[in-house]
Design a protein around this nucleic acid. Structure first.
Length: 420
DNA sequence: TCTGGGGTCCTAGGACCC
DNA sequence: TCTGGGGTCCTAGGACCC
């Protein structure tokens, strides 16, 4: 059994370089919404001490002084580049699982030809670089968890080909010995604390404990991880994309919001967007939650964080129903006297949009659904004209700050790169 | 001044049943 | 003094991922 993990190197930073060859070998960081935190950075930026999730305002000055380049996140562009990379992989390997925007697992057992897996991976890597401009690493191993280890070995040892095949016990053992437990896939902050205080410091240490013991002391999740580190295959490659079980739309605000009149239209925007996502999933939901929170970092101000869940009698994906629920929820949690920093909408309890379960106690407030009507609105909204609901904030999506976004080079006609 | 967004899975404990 | 045992289903919240 052989699995490969393809992982794009500093993906967002690499995207920003594609149409900006002048940025080669320059330090680059990409920021989260509101230009709040650093969410991606190039090798050169890492050398300058930039780390994942660090607040931008803390590193801004020295970074810019040393000629660092900074970008607000441009997800339209990154998403499109990701799709191009994934398409290439799917062309070579019949069974692939797109795991995240910058990673995919490949099932090498499904390859018909008897390729040399290492050479084959090097070939794929160079084609992706040539066709998209994105550099990738490829880690090959007996299962998913070990393929993750292979990728971190490529980084740790700085392997020039960016491809590593952990093909025998000796190589695997050596890699495990050099992997601290917190770098294992599935071991986060809490587990790391527990494991290290029990004297388990490396992945190799962890493989020496019996899976049964791990299960009783920790959890079934960690048990699977241990089994995979020992070479068993517990996690499969899922190539049929399962439908979502939850949809979240939330944002931090560029400026604090303390009155209902400002907050309501913002939350309505979230609700409208969430309903659109739900319809594009061909699903309905029967639970709508609304949350608001103040900034946990501002200790001097009074704090308030609350979530309200509204149950719907009949599953729906009609924006009007979701809006009514959102308003009801917001009214019950909003409090005067707080500076809210973030709000959001969560949809849960999905069912297929084609099945219809009528309720014995239909809520008289719920307007009758009209799927045709919502479909018309969706169609119109894909064009330049936009139809809004009365409770929305039509001016901006939310009061968000974002000043350093690159053009949508590959997804918008007006922003194509120009050659002079 | 300034700290992201969107997901999944598992589990403990409450409500309820006989 | 002293109040069973065994089960299912659901949900909120924790931990983790990128």
């Amino acid at each position: 059994m052989t699995v490969a993990l393809v992982d794009c190197e500093s993906f967002y930073a690499s995207c920003e370089r594609i149409f900006r060859p002048d940025l080669k070998n320059k330090p680059i960081v990409v920021l989260s919404n509101n230009d709040g935190c650093v969410i991606a950075f190039s090798k050169e930026a890492k050398k300058m001490g930039i780390s994942m999730g660090v607040p931008w305002f803390k590193v801004k000055k020295p970074f810019l002084k040393q000629k660092g380049q900074v970008f607000s996140s441009n997800f339209a562009f990154y998403g499109d580049m990701s799709a191009r990379v994934m398409n290439i992989l799917e062309g070579f390997v019949p069974k692939t699982e797109v795991y995240s925007i910058d990673e995919a697992f490949l099932d090498f057992d499904t390859l018909k030809q008897n390729y040399d897996l290492y050479d084959f991976s090097c070939h794929i890597r160079s084609l992706i670089k040539q066709w998209t401009g994105i550099p990738v690493r490829i880690g090959i191993a007996p299962n998913k968890t070990l393929s993750k280890i292979a990728i971190s070995e490529i980084k740790r040892r700085n392997i020039p080909t960016s491809v590593l095949y952990l093909s025998n016990d000796k190589e695997i053992k050596n890699a495990l010995k050099n992997t601290p437990v917190h770098k294992i896939w599935g071991v986060g902050r809490r587990l790391n604390e527990h494991l290290t205080s029990a004297g388990i410091n490396t992945a190799l240490d962890l493989t020496k404990i019996s899976p049964q013991h791990i299960r009783t002391k920790f959890s079934i999740v960690l048990e699977r991880t241990v089994r995979e580190l020992r070479g068993e295959k517990c996690l499969t490659i899922e190539n049929n994309i399962e439908s979502k079980k939850q949809i979240i739309v939330s944002r931090s605000f560029g400026e604090r919001v303390s009155n209902f009149e400002t907050l309501r239209p913002i939350v309505s925007n979230f609700a409208v967007r969430a309903a659109e996502k739900l319809r594009s999933e061909k699903q309905k939901c029967s639970q709508v939650s609304v949350f608001v929170k103040t900034s946990p970092f501002n200790k001097a101000k009074p704090q308030h964080a609350e979530i309200k869940t509204i149950k719907l009698f009949t599953p729906t994906n009609d924006t009007r129903n979701i809006l009514i629920a959102a308003k009801k929820g917001l009214l019950s949690i909003f409090r005067l006297g707080y500076d809210y920093a973030k709000a959001g909408i969560i949809l849960n309890k999905f069912s297929n949009e084609k099945t219809k379960q009528y309720s014995l106690f239909q809520d008289p407030d719920e307007p009758k659904e009209n799927m045709k009507f919502m479909n018309y609105i969706d169609q119109i909204n894909t064009q330049e004209t936009q139809i809004y609901f009365a409770s929305q904030n039509t001016k901006t999506w939310s009061p968000m700050k974002q000043n350093m976004t690159s053009p949508r080079y590959t997804t918008n006609w007006h922003e194509l790169p120009k050659v002079n």
